[in-house]
Amino acid sequence: MNWKRAAIAVLAAAPLIALFAYGFSRDPAEIPSPLPGHAAPEFTLAVFAPGEGPLMRPLGDTVRLGALVGKVVVVNFWASWCGPCRAEHAGLSETARQYVGKPVRFIGVLYNDGAAAASDWITQMGGQSYPAVMDLGSVTAIDYGVYGVPETYIVDASGRIAYKYVGPIPPSVLRQWIDSLLPNATATGMMPLAVVR
């Protein structure tokens, strides 16, 4: 047995084993979005579900993101066939109500779904406070680099995407992020970042 050769061979294997060990700390399904920090892609989409009360937008109206500069905008991609969307729906709707009167807007963008099925779903879920818009051909979803639903993007007052959340967004996270972007927020010093489920 030539121990010197043996030792060299073993050393050669070390990086490979280290690489595999490193691999365990990563989730291959988790792909960071390049969008946070960049200008939010513009869209103009037609409303198909009006929302309620003060947040209502009439049917057939269009929502243009560019017209909302100066406000924090929560853009939520969802679909009626999406299971996890049920989990976040009530929290989103309630949070939107809590920010009535503040410079915050919520928009639900329908992803690969039909207006009738989606409207039914909203009724089933007990209504939705903010309006939902139709994204034909998923052009806007692709512009936002959507992988699946639900995904939530938060656009700051300057029209820049500050945060992205993949999966059902917890209301606490949503509020914390919105507050951090509002002008009178206590400086949190938190850097915008993409948080993935």
Binding site: S80, D113, G114, A115, A117, D120, L136, G137
Partner: peptide, 30 residues
């Protein structure tokens, strides 16, 4: 899934009893 539900209900008649959701909204699909 939704397309299947719809088709099961419409094309195949009452085959779809076991499925929870109803069959609407396909018309708006691009």
């Amino acid at each position: 899934k939704r397309h299947a539900l719809a088709t099961l209900a419409v094309v195949a008649g009452a085959l779809c009893a076991a499925r929870p959701a109803s069959a609407q909204g396909v018309e708006a699909r691009s």
